[in-house]
Amino acid sequence: MQSLTDLEVSLRRADVRRRWWLSLPAMLVVILGGVGPLLIVVVYSFLEAGPYGDVVWKFSGEGWFNVLFERDIFDDTVSIADAHLTILWRSVKLSGITTLLCLIVGFPTAYYMASRGPKARGLLLLLITVPFWTNLLIRTFAIQQLLRAEGLVNVVLMKLRLTDTPVQLLYSDFAILTGMTYVYLPLMVLPLYSTMEKFDFRLMEAAYDLYASRRKALTGVLIPLVKPGMIAGCTLVFIPCLGSYVIPRVLGGGTNLMIGNLIELQFGAGRNWPLGAALSIALVALVMIGLVIFQKNDRSGGDNA
């Protein structure tokens, strides 16, 4: 380092300065579009609720208090907010199951895609992205059409004489899981595919040659080597699932709320913006904690291998 001439030092400084300028647009977008709104939400969560929605600019911890507790309207007794915890737990549970379903369906799909020739791969990759061409809401309504009492699924079931009356599929956890698995599956397949594409399939041959069964080759060679893709896929599915709003709204009816619906309720009919803001920040914090734990586990796993 000491051998650097003045010219080199100034050149390097100019280079660093130039890089700052070049990254400025991206930084602005991140600050204005990401950090800014989040800060507004944080501020709102510490304000007082207005009588007809909106906020009153006065500091209050009531929003955060209401995340976990509720005060009885008549005698002001404090009790745990069961409903919030139930909804939170349902959100985590449904997101977890969705992630698992996506992994079960997405893993073989990605494996199949990655083991094709380059031409077929391109086509399959295009097909995976086809759902993105349509709006999420429209796709969710399409699932609704399939699952409703007169929908395709029930028609087929009745034609096959498996049931006489239509089965109630809509407005249930089943419907939400179906919708979320369908919508978020590509987010599992794509990162899995991109790691498997780099996977040397001759390693599978080597494993078979060295007396591994199919299952052992899978658990001992393929899975450890595509683990980063699995973690990326699970993260990409789990996080939007946790905050999903449209799918539980359309497919879960009014009764099977997830945390996203609860937040919307506070900004709408509930007229409690600080609570909505506090719930939002709680969700963000939850996701961040989850990510940190995930990353830590991944790193220690990598060291052991």
Binding site: D200, R202, L203, E205, A206, A207, Y208, D209, L210, Y211, A212, S213, V221, P224, L225, A305
Partner: peptide, 21 residues
């Protein structure tokens, strides 16, 4: 017989060593 059922082993051209082991 499958590759895992015969007492024959291979040294692969690119070695195919398991990079995680």
């Amino acid at each position: 017989l499958g590759p895992n059922q015969r007492p024959v082993n291979t040294v692969f051209q690119n070695y195919a060593l398991f990079p995680h082991l």
